[in-house]
């Protein structure tokens, strides 16, 4: 793979198979006599593209177009169908608001776990945990379980952890900039820009044309699992 390529996607398809044999031992035993009834859903169909290092790459499409499936495949946590290949140069993580928490744990414990998973050494976590808490504006609630948090508080927390993450490639699933009130949003947008996206490879998935137009260098338009268009935001958004 060429040095300046961050992600290379070759002939990637993804088929989800549903069959009537069931997912339990009981169902499997009961369905021995039944004929095998398989339903295949093609979520992605022969996708090919490359993302350059440092590029801000957008993926846009309506609900059910395969965006999130593609992100999981790029992140290498879901394997593509046989014949497809994804090559990733460096480490990657997926960021999505309101995700990545164990709701039984307190915010402080969740910060520790997430920061550790995102590759921060323990010394550094201990040093920076204060900053993360302060930035999330959650000082008073930091030692209560996340299950009692509002969705806004969760988003702030996730965002605050994410800007400290260490990875070469960020896969953002509808994860963007500020959340909460206007003042916080402005502050978050600034930090988002300075710390998270500057000089890094970003894959940004959205069904919102606004952010795509503002940030992306190139955009891929997906429709029912197929590539419709790959080009500049202007060219692609015209078709969306």
């Amino acid at each position: 793979m060429k040095e300046d390529i961050a992600i290379k996607v070759e002939n990637v398809s993804k088929t989800f198979v549903q069959h009537n044999r069931g997912k339990t031992i009981r169902d499997r035993l009961l369905s021995v006599m039944k004929s095998r009834n398989v339903r295949k859903i093609k979520a992605l169909d022969a996708i090919d593209f490359e993302i350059k290092k440092g590029e801000f790459f957008g993926i846009i499409g309506h609900n059910g177009s395969g965006k999130s499936t593609l992100i999981s495949i790029l992140n290498q946590v879901v394997p593509p169908d046989k014949g497809g290949k994804v090559t990733v140069n460096g480490t990657s993580i997926r960021l999505a608001l309101g995700m990545g928490f164990n709701k039984e744990l307190t915010a402080r414990q969740n910060i520790m776990i997430n920061a550790s998973v995102l590759g921060m050494p323990m010394e550094k976590i201990k040093l920076e945990i204060g900053k993360i808490i302060e930035f999330a504006e959650l000082e008073d609630y930091i030692d209560i379980p996340v299950k009692y948090y509002s969705s806004g508080m969760r988003s702030k927390l996730m965002f605050s952890i994410a800007v400290n993450a260490k990875a070469d490639i960020f896969l953002m699933d509808e994860f963007f900039g500020g959340v909460g009130d206007k003042k916080y949003k402005e502050k978050a947008d600034q930090v988002f820009h300075d710390r998270l996206i500057k000089g890094k490879t970003i894959v940004h998935v959205s069904h919102n044309p606004g952010t795509i137009e503002k940030y992306c260098d190139r955009v891929l338009l997906l429709e029912k699992g197929k590539m419709v268009k790959l080009g500049t935001p202007d060219e692609v958004l015209e078709l969306f």
């Binding site: 992140n75 946590v77 997926r94 164990n102």
Partner: peptide
């Protein structure tokens, strides 16, 4: 299932 919240976000 318990660790899904980590597994789906990063390859570990």
């Amino acid at each position: 299932q318990k660790q899904r919240f980590i597994l789906e976000n990063i390859k570990l």
